[in-house]
């Protein structure tokens, strides 16, 4: 795949899943996200790109309130998922995170068996009534994570014993098992080799059928390959947001152009 294929992708408009209005994030004294407005669509892969430290990961972590776990982080503004403000005091972040799953930069399987890794989410959220249902969820999730064939004979083996790419697909399966509606991926391929990366990218494309996928990546090629929408962040600002093909071929903002052509970053 190369950058050209991005042009061929049909850009269709889906209904808005997440809408962010005037989002500001402060880490102690530093202003990490400045007045970001963005609409993320359902059944779409949205890529966040930008140089390191531009705030793209921070913004991603706002979408399932993972920033709550950091003491000095303060989020203001309005982020709505399906029309509900997720920073409303009535919202329980635990419930929110079941709806908005997350995959991290480094594969982080728990030191448990493959089965228990995937069953972890359904168990804590009480999604399975009995063992048979749980088995079914685990199998379905592992299939969706495109790793079932590789691990179906060793579900009791520890998840940490898999290869890096397999671990990341296991983590995706684990995230999928809680039946989220949105999947956040924070540079999911940065710790992987090219072959594993290709497998994950293929998987992301499949996942688009079921979820709204948001992926942070520092690789422009990857953004071009997997996403339909791209947002370019720079120094905490959302500089440009639009269809991937348009961002990469005809950026409106000079900063975007500089980044794409490699002058900043």
């Amino acid at each position: 795949m190369n950058q050209i294929t991005a042009l061929d992708k049909t850009v269709q408009t889906n209904k808005t899943k997440i809408s962010a209005r005037n989002v500001n994030v402060h880490y102690g004294d530093s202003h990490a996200i400045k007045d970001v407005n963005v609409e993320i669509e359902d059944n779409t892969v949205t890529a966040f790109i930008g140089p390191s430290g531009c705030g793209k990961s921070t913004f991603l972590r706002c979408l399932n309130r993972m920033n709550d776990t950091i003491d000095i982080c303060r989020v203001t503004g309005d982020i709505q998922i399906d029309g509900e403000n997720i920073y409303d005091p009535r919202v329980d972040p635990v419930q929110l995170r079941a709806k908005v799953g997350m995959v991290f930069q480094k594969p982080n399987p728990f030191p448990k068996s493959i089965y228990d890794n995937v069953a972890y989410g359904p168990r804590i959220h009480g999604l399975a009534a009995n063992k048979a249902e749980l088995d079914e969820i685990v199998e379905k999730s592992l299939r969706r994570g495109a790793i079932w064939e590789e691990v179906k004979d060793r579900l009791d083996a520890p998840g940490t014993g898999l290869s890096g790419g397999q671990q990341q697909r296991l983590c995706i399966a684990r995230a999928v098992a809680t039946e989220p509606e949105v999947l956040l991926m924070d540079e999911p391929c940065s710790a992987l080799d090219p072959i594993a990366t290709a497998q994950i990218e293929e998987l992301i494309d499949e996942l688009r059928n079921s979820y709204s996928v948001v992926i942070v990546t520092h690789s422009m090629q990857q953004a071009a390959r997997v996403s339909q929408k791209t947002a370019f962040f720079h120094l905490g600002n959302l500089v440009e947001f639009g269809a991937t093909g348009q961002i990469f071929t005809n950026p409106e903002d000079p900063r975007t152009e500089s980044y794409i052509t490699g002058r900043i970053g």
Partner: peptide, 25 residues
């Protein structure tokens, strides 16, 4: 990636199945 291609219908149905997080946040 064979397993995915084997079960496209399953994925499709799973995607459209009513979410278990149907209630309001």
């Amino acid at each position: 990636m064979s397993d995915i291609s084997q079960t496209p219908s399953q994925i499709a149905t799973a995607g459209k199945a009513p979410s278990k997080h149907a209630g309001s946040l």
